[in-house]
Amino acid sequence: MKYGAPFLAVIALVLIAWLGSLIPGMQYVFGVVFPYLAMAMFLYGFIRQVVYWGKSPVPFSIQTTCGQAKSLDFIKHNKLEAPDTNSQVVARMLLEVLTFRSLFRNTQARIYSGPKLTHESSKWLWMFALLFHYSFLVVLIRHMRLFLNPYPVCLDWLEFLDGIFQIGAPNWYITDICLVTGLVLLLLRRFCQTKVRYISLANDYFPLFLLLGIAITGILMRYCLRGNVDVVAIKQLAVGLATFQPTITADIASIFYIHLFLVCALLVYFPYSKLMHMGGVFFSPTRNMRNNTRAARHINPWNPDIKPHSYAGYEDEFREFMVDAGIPVEKELPAKQA
């Protein structure tokens, strides 16, 4: 089953962390050893993958032009969609990375509407993706307060903004809700849209389940099982991890270890999976190249030495016809023998 197995895998991870953290002495393994190991594997894997990509050259300039190229003076150049300079490329890439521009493009004018159609706006995917990615980013930044001591004051501002609606006690963060909503919507999309469901693989469900697991355990910790969670001890551990002097001072609830272990799993899984699209998007030759290939030569490092079928060979084969037809030749016909 494409989604059954990944789901069970995440459940298994939860169980491992839960049961494992209950064994005396294993807290250190789950709280210190695994995080270091996972971080090391993440960094190694990430760098390895980027180097692996970087090792292959970009032989041809294959940008996809999505607008008018730079051309004659009176033709308006679309600088973002057919960039001509490096700064235009940077602008195009920034829009792509920060606003998912290509997904946004996924718009279609609906001119004809038959009898009651289920219109599925094409912007959904873009919205879900934005919702998830930005929530995740903010949540990640908020977590920095655990690792930094003292933490920068801007984290306070961020937390204030994130909790500005002042709902519930403890105050709910908007991004926590958005993160889970985003993930659930992305998951539902995979389940409900036949087309997407058909192309989805286990590798598409696993990260969604894993991230949901992380988000749910995190939320449980903050809002529901708060009484059992010793935040001071966690902060101490986190700062310790960040400063390479990890200590576990008190018993921390299993839910924390589950959360942490799932994060470790994510870190290990990340570089070997499609999640590397985070790095890959910067490398995409159809987006990150200038559309100036006629103005400046792009170099192919392995340009093979291939000569055309030579003119001389061509003329040798057809000289007689060419002379007959009055087409100029390099070498005249040999004088006719009597």
Partner: peptide, 25 residues
């Protein structure tokens, strides 16, 4: 993959589904 043909209402993005719906209607 009829699902797509059923849902997509734009006749330019979905000529098959669009043509059918229009014809039958």
């Amino acid at each position: 993959s009829p699902d797509f043909f059923l849902r997509e209402g734009d006749p330019f993005a979905n000529p098959i589904g669009g043509a059918m719906r229009q014809a039958f209607d």
